[in-house]
């Protein structure tokens, strides 16, 4: 498992190439990258706050759960904090498994849980002012599909 919480930008291609250097029994790699979205063309930048003492252990627990459920060969989670510009990558996950079904499911699970259970808070700063992004009910509801 590779878990990184950082302010610095990362190179999506280089990360994926490095992650793809796998053992021969791995037949599938799935990756997801989350970008700073500016849907209305008004975003100046995004501020991402986190809880440093908790962030890495919360992500590790989520990744370990994914690992156990889908018998992954490897998991990568990178999540940034601090000031980010529109179009920058906020985070990425990648999963490696023998077959694609497990790799896709594990990546979706990771995304659902990182969104609502990893201690990050996004603030959007526009030319009209700043506002914290509200958690959406649909994000909380997404977790229920993973409960037995």
């Amino acid at each position: 498992m590779r878990i990184r919480v950082q302010n610095a930008a990362f190179d999506i291609g280089a990360e994926l190439a490095e992650f793809s250097n796998v053992r021969p029994e791995i037949g599938a790699i799935v990756s997801f990258t989350g970008m700073v979205r500016d849907s209305e063309g008004r975003l100046d930048h995004m501020e991402i706050e986190h809880y440093p003492a908790m962030t890495e252990r919360a992500i590790t627990a989520i990744a370990e759960e994914a690992n156990t459920r889908w018998s992954l060969g490897d998991v990568l989670v990178i999540h940034r904090f601090g000031r980010l510009q529109p179009g920058e990558a906020i985070m990425m996950v990648a999963t490696a498994a023998p077959h694609r079904a497990n790799a896709f499911a594990a990546a979706e699970f990771l995304m659902d849980y990182l969104k609502s259970r990893a201690p990050f808070w996004k603030k959007e700063v526009t030319r009209d002012g700043a506002a914290w992004v509200a958690a959406r009910d649909v994000d909380e509801a997404a977790l229920s599909r993973w409960r037995d």
């Binding site: 809880y51 908790m54 252990r57 906020i90 969104k115 201690p119 808070w121 509200a134 958690a135």
Partner: peptide, 26 residues
Amino acid sequence: DQDLADFDAPLAGVREVAFFPPMTGG
């Protein structure tokens, strides 16, 4: 102590309590 908890969680032996809105990661 850096784990999500409920409002009825006991404080005996606890060193750190954090309050925040629902998280918006990802």
